[in-house]
Amino acid sequence: MISENPVHDAMIAAALAAGKAILSHYSQEATEARLKVDSSPVTAADEAAEAEIIKILSTHVPSIPIISEEQASAGTIPPESERFFLVDPLDGTKEFISRNGEFTVNIALVNGVEAVAGVVYAPALSRIFFGAIGKGAWEANVTQDKDLIWRSIQAREIPDEGLVAVASRSHAGAETDAYLKLFNVLNRVSAGSSLKFCLIAAGEADIYPRLGRTMEWDTAAGHALLSAAGGCVRTLDGIDLTYGKRNQVSDSAFANPHFIAFASSDLVSFKHKTASAVA
């Protein structure tokens, strides 16, 4: 392992186990999905992955409560705690159903309101990422029956020739297009799930605007990874995206405001004069 920290080791082990469970369903010819109360899809793979994560985290770090998407959707939310896990067992269910491979397992550790460590695993792509603030960020290729060989990654400086923007494959729209016109964007790529954070953390992209609804378990692991790699995630007001938002007047518990992920804090110093107009 890249860390001597048992909490981090448990997070990585849980993500790998969840990914294995997801792939066992992914190999099947047909995937049946049903709609949750919020109209988002859920499959047996989501539930199998969540069960693996909860089993491993509860066994190895029972003192840290777990807020997981499917349990939260069913109304099971632990009491408030200074330290907790945020889990999306299968981020990108639409990508899973469409078989494009761009889905991930997300596990984050939150301390206070800050996502301080995160693992993002894309099992169909055999890529796993881990980052911890103050420690660094890494990526490894997952090969069956072989130990992970981790390599350090870092978000890049602003390229002179222009930015690579990454946007949601399923949720980008006119507002995203308008926002990106504020920057010198050389190229734009689409990606599903929290892979967008990973591409920036690995130095493959520079900016990811999300001007639509997300939940904390969608973003926390990727946010921690990107922060550990030298990037940042800010709201349209320029404030760090925070976690544990339970009693929100204007939205439901654990819902995020619109945000932008940046490879470099230097990009944040660019004042988005019309950002509020396109949000």
Rank of each mutant, 00 (worst) to 15 (best):
G134T: 07
I66P: 04
Y243S: 11
T31Q: 12
A48N: 08
A167P: 01
F183H: 14
A279H: 08
L90Q: 15
A174M: 11
S24G: 02
P209Y: 00
G173C: 06
A228K: 03
A15S: 15
A33D: 09
C198H: 01
K94F: 02
A205W: 03
V278T: 13
D46N: 00
S98K: 13
E52R: 15
P41T: 12
V110P: 10
S81E: 11
S194Y: 11
A172P: 05
A18Y: 11
A33N: 07
R151E: 14
P159D: 03
F129V: 00
V166Q: 07
V105Y: 04
R156S: 14
E80V: 08
P41S: 11
W150L: 08
F270N: 06
V249N: 07
H272M: 09
L211H: 05
S269R: 15
A132I: 05
V87Y: 03
A21P: 04
L90A: 03
A172K: 13
R234H: 12
C232E: 13
E4R: 15
N100T: 08
E114P: 04
L125G: 04
S126C: 11
T219I: 11
F84D: 12
S58W: 02
S63G: 13
A49D: 10
E50V: 00
A255F: 13
A124G: 12
G134N: 12
A117L: 03
E47K: 10
L35Y: 14
I260S: 01
V7Y: 14
K181Y: 06
L226R: 06
G173M: 09
A13M: 07
T143I: 15
N247S: 12
E157Y: 07
I149G: 05
A224T: 01
A140K: 03
I53M: 09
R188E: 13
S98C: 10
F183S: 01
V116I: 15
A48Q: 13
L109N: 13
A191K: 09
